[in-house]
Every structure is written in C-alpha cells, then in structure tokens.
C-alpha cells in the first residue's frame, strides 16, 4: 500500500525549502504520468514519503520570447504552448509537438517540465528543444545550474536532476535570420498516441544554402539525440547539393549505430529514413527552392 504525505507549495521559495528540509520527496506537476503510476500502485512510490504539488507556483509558469533569447517555465502546459501566438509565429515546431501530445484533457494539465523530467524515451518535448540547443535551469536552495538538454537524460526515466533540485525553466537562443522548421511524428493513431518516432528539423538558411541545421530524433534512441552525421552532411551545403534521400539513409544508419539491431529496427530504419527525407524536402520547398 502506497502511503505519503501530500504537501502543496505556493512559491518557488517554498518548493526549495521543502526540498532542502525533507527527504524522499516526489514532485507532482500536471500529474498525467504520475497519477497513472500512483493509481497502479507503482513500487517506486514505496520510496516516497512526501508528494509535493507545485501546480500553484506562478514563478514556474509562462513563455517569454525575446529577440535573442527565449524561456519557457517548467509548469507551462502543452495547451498553453499550442495556443500561444508567439510560439505559433516564432517557434511553430514547439507548438506542433505540443499539439501531438495526448488529448485536449491531457494537454490542459500536462506540463513541458513534467514531460522532460519524466524523461520517457518517447517524450515529445525533447526533440524541438534539443534542436534549439536548449538548456535547463535546475535550481536548489543554494542557487541554479544550467544543463544542456541533450545531457539531461542518462537513461529512459532517469535524469541528472538531483533530489534537492527542481526544474525551473527551459532557456534557449532564438533562431536568427531566415529559418525553417518541421516537426513530424509517427504514432499508431492520431490522438492519445505514443510516438513510435518523432523528428524535429530546424535550419538557418542563407543564400540558398544551409548555414546551421539540427535534425533531432524522438523515440528512435533510448535518450533523444541530435543526428550529428546528418547535421554534418547538411551543414554548409547549398540546396542544389542536398540529396534528401541520402540524408534519410545517413540518419537511419546513425540510429542503428546507437541502438544496434533491435526487434523494431526493420520498421524504424526505413520509417526514420523517410521521415528525415520528408523533413529535408519540406525544408527545401519552404525555402522556395525548386531544384
């Protein structure tokens, strides 16, 4: 039988105080993952003495996008992300990822911070934020440290967040100049769907060539990673030099290089290859290149 004391914090200071003073504290945000585990009396709750509800902490909410830098509070819900006009205009791939998550009811509660900290291998928030080169601000009572998002997950459901820390916000540099993006997801159905594969492509372009590019997978590898070989292949190429199918093959090779041949490889290899090919074709089309 799971037993814990429920605590509610109303400010960040209160959260940090509780995390310092008490041991065996589990933070509760939107609850759309945690409440499922709780209902199923997951053995992980045997090591928890306190459940700390932080949903009322205003300092952890909100979206701020400046000309140079942007930040998203950890408690920002997926519904808030997809309905934000700023996100839609400047970072549409983040809105696309948010809208692909769960259902309306889930998106109304589930938070971007919860998605990251829960760190499921299939979590949809990673690839758009890794493409942005995002860092996480992890705060404890003594201060804050920044961790690059791609270094945050050690293994599915296991992160470098310490027991006395809370994820405060996600910070990133805004893409500059002319840029194009795409977010793609393959699931078994349209709604309430767990990603089989997802992908973000974010490219800064100049003079019909790629200046900077990030192609990042979700659900393809145990922890989400940028496809370095694909990025290397595409960077500094003119549009005319790019073969989208080749980019797809490089990404697929890179995925199998990380995961090894698995039961899902005969499906995921060609699927990822096509997903990357499609994303690159979309990029060229959006950039107005008619090859």
């Amino acid at each position: 039988m799971v037993e814990y004391q429920l605590l509610r914090a109303h400010s960040l200071e209160e959260v940090l105080e509780i995390l310092t003073e008490k041991k065996k504290v589990q933070i509760l945000a939107g609850g759309t993952d945690l409440m499922v585990d709780l209902h199923q009396q997951d053995p992980k709750f045997e090591n928890i003495d306190y459940l700390l509800d932080i949903t009322d902490v205003a300092e952890l909410k909100g979206i701020k996008l400046g000309p140079e830098e942007g930040e998203i509070g950890a408690l920002t819900t997926h519904a808030e992300l997809l309905s934000s006009p700023e996100i839609k205009e400047k970072l549409p791939f983040i809105g696309a990822a948010a809208s692909s998550i769960g259902s309306t009811q889930i998106r109304n509660r589930a938070t971007i911070g919860g998605n990251l900290v829960n760190a499921a291998a299939c979590a949809d928030s990673f690839s758009p934020l890794i493409a942005l080169g995002a860092e996480l601000v992890l705060r404890n009572k003594g201060g804050a440290r920044r961790v690059l998002l791609e270094d945050f997950v050690e293994w599915p459901n296991q992160t470098v967040l310490k027991d006395n820390e809370v994820l405060e916000k996600i910070v990133f540099k805004m893409p500059q100049g002319e840029y194009h993006s795409s977010y793609q997801k393959i699931g078994r159905r349209n709604a309430v769907s767990i990603s089989r594969l997802s992908l973000t492509l974010l490219a800064e372009v100049e003079n019909e060539a790629i200046k900077n590019i990030q192609v990042v997978s979700g659900a393809a590898t145990p922890a989400p990673v940028p496809f370095r070989e694909v990025n290397k292949y595409l960077t500094a190429k003119t549009f005319a030099e790019i073969d989208p199918a080749e980019a797809g093959e490089i990404a697929a090779d890179e995925m199998v290089g990380i995961t090894g041949e698995r039961w899902s490889t005969p499906y995921k290899r060609p699927a990822l290859s096509k997903l990357v090919e499609r994303a690159v074709k979309d990029l060229l089309e959006e950039a107005g290149y008619n090859g």
Partner: peptide, 22 residues
C-alpha cells in the same frame, strides 16, 4: 489512466480527466 475521457469534468474552464487530478 487518462485514456478514455469518461471522467472528464471542467476545472476552471478547462476539460480535464478527473482521474488524473488529486
């Protein structure tokens, strides 16, 4: 577990699964 929506209620103007909220 938040999949079927039979428990949906409106909390502060938003539809939520009442099985996933304390």
């Amino acid at each position: 577990v938040g999949e079927c929506g039979a428990c949906t209620v409106i909390v502060d103007d938003q539809a939520v699964n009442s099985c996933l909220v304390l």
